[in-house]
Design a protein around this nucleic acid. Sequence first.
DNA 1: CGACTAATTGAATGTCATCAAGAGCTGTGG
DNA 2: CCACAGCTCTTGATGACATTCAATTAGTCG
Lengths: 250, 250
Amino acid sequence: MTLRLEVAELADPRTSCGQCAWHALCLPAAIDGDDLARLDQLVHKRRPLRRGDVLFREGSRQPALFVVRSGTLKTFTTLPDGDTQVLGFHLAGEIIGFDGLVDEPHRATAEALEDASVCEVPVARLAEVAAQAPGLQRQVYRIMGREFSREQAHVVVMGRRQAMSRLALFLHSLRERRRSTGHDPDRLSLSMSRQELANYLGLVIETVSRLFSRLQALHILEVDRKHVRVLDPLALEALAQGDEDARATA
Amino acid sequence: MTLRLEVAELADPRTSCGQCAWHALCLPAAIDGDDLARLDQLVHKRRPLRRGDVLFREGSRQPALFVVRSGTLKTFTTLPDGDTQVLGFHLAGEIIGFDGLVDEPHRATAEALEDASVCEVPVARLAEVAAQAPGLQRQVYRIMGREFSREQAHVVVMGRRQAMSRLALFLHSLRERRRSTGHDPDRLSLSMSRQELANYLGLVIETVSRLFSRLQALHILEVDRKHVRVLDPLALEALAQGDEDARATA
DNA sequence: CGACTAATTGAATGTCATCAAGAGCTGTGG
DNA sequence: CCACAGCTCTTGATGACATTCAATTAGTCG
């Protein structure tokens, strides 16, 4: 049974943690029995989101974590001058909300890029249960470390000074995420707009558009709006590392 | 008694958590009595570092957090092509090591930029104690959220497309950190090299050097090697927001 | 079908990287 | 103490690449 086949189940708000497809990546990994039952109870909302819906807003206090069950969300922050910075795109299986963990208001706004569903886990009660379930506690730490690394990866992407390298690195990370969830890594669906992607990468929309065109001309990608097919992963890797004259190798 | 006067105390490896100047920012905040004593015991190493010493290395497994007591460290990661990316500069009072929290190897290397001292907190035993001390548990979460926000701030800096804006934003954040520890926010000491700063900002060293010269010519800064004096904070703010023609307002 | 938004493409400008040289520190040994 | 080597940092000239401005096309929704 692959993950792909479980879309219907993922959309069902009544699925318990024990049955959920994301079990291994999520909080309940490594716990069972009574602890699992308690966790299941405190995950009190499994709410559906429509495109554009806001899950939490900058400045709000709402100490909760959200597990993305299906769909994609973005998080972004607003600067004093009104500009925004996209901080991340969050695919199914990922967990967001660490920025407003305790007492601190959220520094980011989370918005659905497409129809999505999430589980809400109140931090206060999570902490209670975790205190009595060492396995859960470890898993909370593990996931935090994972999300922390994801942030660092974003910094690495933005640290590249060649626009092509940034986009290639981003596409590479998307491939990895697809692979880790059992999907075809060469078929990517970009749920964000060009504008949002450009912002995430620290570029302007025209540059991103041109890069996609160039990757298509080089027969490295096949681009159709939001659907991208990776024809030459090796060339993409080369570009990610800054080999500006990478040609299609296939 | 200001924090400035406690340098000697900070350097003393025998200082207990309860007496430490960073008490309020660190793990022991909001706990006391027996819990504090237990925490104190598990913080088993208070080791001094010399410039260039490596605290932990990329790929190593060593589930521990490190509290910077004095001095400055940098964390960086190495890319497949050998390039490095500086991920952060960590001043006294900050806590590092979240990227290798559980089971996962560290993705970053931590190195002292100057003589420094840190407390090491083994994660496994921290979790044990935290399970019995809700206040400590909350504090762990709080600090994680704080460090998470710091990472996001780095992304925001790199998201700016004007080099001047990035540097100004960085200097602004340094001022904030100075202020929050009770120091004069207008006297900054850059413990990192120009190269490391440039890398952190996603720029090359020459650009950073030119920016400092320009800020000095505009009478916004007074720069002497690693010592920077902020003459015009308002102009700096303006530059951070992208007002390219900010002039000294003082 | 028509209005609106998103994305692409083109031409010109500007900013930052690159290449290169020189100045300023730092440390070492005679 | 000074001389010299090695390093970091600064400054200048040039060019590449991303941004900006502008126009067109494609796609979406009423």
